[in-house]
Write a protein that binds this DNA or RNA. Structure first.
Ligand SMILES: [Zn+2]
Ligand SMILES: [Zn+2]
Ligand SMILES: [Zn+2]
Ligand SMILES: [Zn+2]
Lengths: 136, 136
DNA sequence: CCAAGGCTGAGAATCGTTCTCATGACTCGC
DNA sequence: GCGAGTCATGAGAACGATTCTCAGCCTTGG
């Protein structure tokens, strides 16, 4: 089926970078991370790889307030949402069982079909709050 | 307070365009709309005005999957969410009372502060579905 | 080891959005 | 009405993120 996907050093590097962190990261951050690590990979390749991983459901993508895409390889591939620190990207996977059914119900009641939902929580994690307190 | 804001023909035009539609629209769509209408307004001004309106809570902003910002003047200014048609932008304002408390609770339980939530539902409205059925 | 075709990366190109700055429009006091 | 002081406008440049181009490289199957 997708036998045409080749395992290259670059893809492994990107996947490795994703596995190495627990935080949501932008394509550019991952690109820099790889460069610093010594596994330099072209920016275009980073984007392409993330795109492929996202399409395959292997990484989660979300958008910051200003539209930048952030990626993260979550522990599970089943549907879930996130609570993300807006300053460091640290994330916690969360479930919202009642939210799921609510979304479907509301959508259907308005005559809409193919309902999907975007549900993400943003906040400041304990570490970042402590850091801010010290400097502020 | 904000007495330094002047009511200009351009701002009125943008506000008018927003009032004239019930759908979420991008800055560029509004810009074209105004041009077609005869109330040509510079693109930069459209962006600036939308920004100001959004800052003042007079219009709602949301981001499409690919990061583009969409704006809409909703009937109410109190906190609410939306069910948006991904093909025409038609939107319905919705409430999620249980969702609100869930968001706060989950955020706090993980040690995060300043919790905010992004909750939007996407779907295909009845009209667009009908249109798609005819052509497909 | 080879051919075939996916993969890569530097740089150009897009695209949405913001910035710059010279010019225009308001406001207010006279 | 008139001018100074300001805020607003708009054309175009600048930006930042992402995508595209395409020639050369590398993985894979045999
Ligand atoms: Zn944090
Ligand atoms: Zn969900
Ligand atoms: Zn709204
Ligand atoms: Zn809410």
């Amino acid at each position: 089926m997708n036998q045409q996907l080749r395992m290259t050093k670059q893809r492994a590097a990107v996947a490795g970078a994703l596995d190495a962190t627990d935080e949501f990261r932008s394509a550019q951050q991952l690109h820099e991370l790889l460069r610093d690590r010594g596994d330099a990979v072209g920016l275009a390749t980073v984007y392409r790889t993330l795109q492929a991983l996202a399409a395959g459901g292997e990484v989660d993508v979300l958008r910051t307030d200003d539209g930048e895409a952030l990626y993260r390889r979550c522990a599970r591939t089943e549907h879930h949402h996130h609570l993300v620190c807006r300053s460091c990207g640290h994330a916690v996977e969360i479930d919202g069982p009642t939210v799921e059914s609510w979304a479907v119900r509301v959508g259907a009641s308005q005559g809409f079909s193919d309902i999907e939902h975007t549900i993400e929580l943003w906040g400041t994690c304990a570490d970042c709050r402590a850091a801010a307190a010290h400097s502020g």
